Amino acid sequence: MDPRALRARLRHVYWIGGGSGGGKSTIARRLAARHGLSVYATDDVMPEHARLLTPREAPQLSRFKDMDMDERWVHRSPRAMLETFHWYRGEGFGLIVADLLRLPPGRGVIAEGFRLLPGLVGPLLVDPARAVWLLPTPAFRRAAFDSRGTAWDIPRRTGDPRRALHNLLERDRLFTDRLAEETGRLGLPAVEVGPGTGEDELAERVARVFGLC
């Protein structure tokens, strides 16, 4: 599809990307309820997208599937985990776009999730203010995981849970740093989310970026 036509088809979409634990899902739901929008959560469709992608289309995903839990989260460095994680490489992003194109165009939708990478979303925007990336500090991310009770979900399934948790948190920090660099370089909106940032404040800041208030 012609890039201009694709942007026009997706002009009703607001995009919230960012690092894990940054509040993407919470803010998307709050703004959707307040402004009569729907939500497309990319996390919810990950299993289906992973099933649909072939090894040729998603080589990093294929390698990831072949690893056991220790190979994924214990024995590799956080930097290696960052560079080879399939969703961070944009594998399957085309399926996200296809899903959004199938939604009714008459109602605005907020697409949210860490898979929404700046370099992939940017060319789809009719206006940079239709997207924002939430950048949680390490302290905010750890507090968010602890409050949800999910911090140990993956690590406890490995042979070295403490090492796995360290690797995961460090990988997520590196990913968030990368998002900060990319949004800055591309001139796309980003919001740092640190300790003391409340949901009301964050929702208001994102709404202002989107021009919803």
Rank of each mutant, 00 (worst) to 15 (best):
D146S: 09
V132Y: 02
R9M: 10
P118D: 08
D160N: 13
A41Y: 13
I27Y: 03
R173E: 13
D127P: 10
R162W: 09
I154C: 07
L212G: 01
G196L: 09
G194R: 11
F93C: 04
E48G: 10
W133C: 03
P105Q: 03
I110M: 06
D2F: 02
D200T: 15
L202I: 05
P118G: 07
V45R: 15
H35D: 04
V39W: 13
R63W: 10
G92D: 10
L135C: 07
E182R: 08
G22E: 11
D177G: 14
P138N: 02
R185P: 02
M46S: 12
T137R: 00
W15M: 01
P59I: 08
R171H: 04
G196D: 12
R30D: 09
A143H: 01
P195M: 10
E57F: 10
R205G: 03
H86Q: 09
L120C: 09
D66R: 15
E170S: 06
T150Q: 10
R205I: 00
A41E: 14
P138H: 01
R107W: 05
D43P: 08
R185W: 09
T137V: 01
V74F: 02
K24F: 07
A207H: 12
M67H: 10
P118Q: 09
P136E: 03
L61G: 05
L168T: 06
W87H: 08
N167M: 12
V191L: 15
F140P: 00
L124S: 11
P189H: 03
W73K: 01
L6V: 05
R156P: 06
I16S: 07
R157S: 12
S25F: 13
R162T: 08
L134S: 05
H12K: 06
W87M: 12
L95W: 12
R56F: 07
M46R: 15
A80N: 09
D2N: 15
E112Y: 04
A190H: 14
F145D: 07
A98M: 05
D172C: 04
